[in-house]
């Protein structure tokens, strides 16, 4: 039997990108605890979702900016964890999907981690709408384009219009339904986001 280490090595080799891959792209899935972020990433990812973390200080600066050891010793550093998956789009483009917690401290790291992101999906559990208010706020603040995906946990009595109202959604922001456990449904959420980006781009061009 192979050891766990060589299994891991073999798994990584199977998961390797093609030698021609040269352009990484990002989409972020954000939402409250337990809303289905990891599930959605897993549904569409070609690799088992991996977990990683970033360290920050209270001032929102990283250890790379605070004088290294001193910064670390100052005990002001906090760690935020996020998971990610991957979709090879073609010979050159590779899309990385990040599942990011919506909690407050995370947003200090947004620019450092997710600048240049194509856009975001805000996952909403219709039974706990208020959990997504903060994320929507921050995305608007950062000027990151996003759509809202209502995850189907069953038993939601809200109509789409009521949900829009409760989220105070701009009429231009698409609201779609999704079941994060379904690959097809999760894929359609991502497509809806990219279609939205195309619409925004077209509007921007006309405005010029």
């Amino acid at each position: 039997m192979d050891s766990a280490i060589s299994d891991a090595t073999a798994e990584r080799r199977d998961a390797a990108l093609s030698a021609t891959a040269d352009n990484g792209l990002k989409i972020v899935v954000v939402g409250g605890f337990g809303v289905g972020k990891t599930t959605l990433v897993r549904s569409v990812s070609e690799i088992r979702p991996l977990n990683t973390e970033e360290t920050m200080t209270q001032a929102g600066r990283g250890i790379d900016e605070t004088g290294g050891l001193d910064g670390l010793r100052a005990k002001t550093s906090t760690t935020v964890a996020f998971d990610f998956g991957r979709i090879t789009l073609d010979a050159h483009n590779v899309l990385y999907l990040f599942g990011a917690p919506g909690q407050e401290r995370f947003w200090f790291l947004w620019d450092r981690l997710f600048s240049g992101t194509l856009g975001a999906v805000v996952l909403v559990d219709p039974r706990r709408i208020e959990d997504s208010w903060y994320a929507i706020d921050r995305l608007e603040h950062h000027g990151t384009p996003f759509i809202v995906a209502r995850n189907d946990f069953g038993g939601s009595a809200h109509t789409a219009a009521q949900l829009r109202e409760a989220l105070d959604l701009d009429p231009g922001v698409p609201l779609v339904d999704c079941d994060a456990r379904s690959r097809e449904s999760s894929k359609n959420v991502l497509i809806a986001l990219v279609e939205h980006l195309k619409t925004l781009y077209a509007a921007q061009e006309t405005a010029k």
């Binding site: 789009l89 483009n93 194509l118 894929k187 990219v194």
Partner: peptide
């Protein structure tokens, strides 16, 4: 916003 060529490539890949 990313340019429409990239967006189109992403869409094709996702579909």
């Amino acid at each position: 916003l990313p340019d429409p060529d990239i967006l189109e490539q992403v869409l094709v890949g996702l579909r």
